[in-house]
């Protein structure tokens, strides 16, 4: 891991738990001794609109916004959003994508179709070859609740970033309500394993 810090961009659709995931990463950064800024934009939609969160770890963080091309990691909870925001990623950076589509209403109203996987992969490939696709919803559903997909992705991220698992667990314990903690722990581990097998 780089001592100068890491910029994470998290994107998803309202209702997917994007904000909770960025809260976890922010707490983790603090525990690791970084200065941290976490900026969210949750626009007008409670459910169904684009949600983005910028999270920066560093010795001293000024701008809350990550400039285009300067994110080290893009975590996308929905694959169209991954394609939409891929250019925030540094060329060659790490893209972690939930292999899951939420079709926006505009597909019906404007006639612009939801892009096929090939187009999505090509778009990501314009910026990076380090794109990991994780079936977050399927994995979370198998564990009993599709809503834990965000934590599956965090588990996958933990494997890719090679950060100490115990620190992650302490943050999960802090941020997740007790009654959901066991589910989220299992989701986290499943995410780690999913990437281990993919790599």
């Amino acid at each position: 891991m780089k001592s100068e810090g890491i910029n994470f961009a998290l994107v998803g659709v309202g209702g997917q738990g994007t904000i909770l995931a960025s809260d976890v990463l922010a707490e983790l950064g603090l525990r690791l001794g970084y200065d941290v800024k976490k900026a969210e934009v949750h626009g007008m939609s409670q459910r169904g609109g684009s949600v983005t969160s910028h999270l920066r770890w560093g010795p001293r963080v000024f701008s809350p916004i990550i400039p285009r091309g300067e994110a080290d990691v893009l975590i996308a909870f929905e694959k169209l959003e991954a394609a939409r925001f891929i250019d925030i990623l540094k060329p060659g950076g790490l893209a972690l994508v939930n292999d899951y589509a939420i079709e926006p209403l505009s597909v019906q109203t404007t006639g612009v179709p939801y892009p096929g996987d090939e187009m999505l992969h090509e778009r990501l490939a314009q910026v990076t070859q380090h794109a990991y696709w994780v079936k977050g919803i399927e994995i979370a559903e198998a564990l009993g609740n599709s809503r834990a997909a965000n934590v599956v992705l965090l588990g996958a991220l933990s494997a890719l970033l090679d950060l100490d698992e115990s620190q992650w667990d302490a943050v999960l314990e802090q941020r997740v309500p007790a009654k959901h903690l066991e589910l989220n722990r299992r989701a986290f581990r499943a995410g780690r394993e999913a990437v281990a097998t993919a790599v």
Binding site: S45, G48, G49, S50, L80, P104
Partner: peptide, 10 residues
């Protein structure tokens, strides 16, 4: 080529 995702009624 990417469909937009504006806010909508839930």
């Amino acid at each position: 080529g990417l469909p937009i995702r504006p806010p909508v009624l839930c």
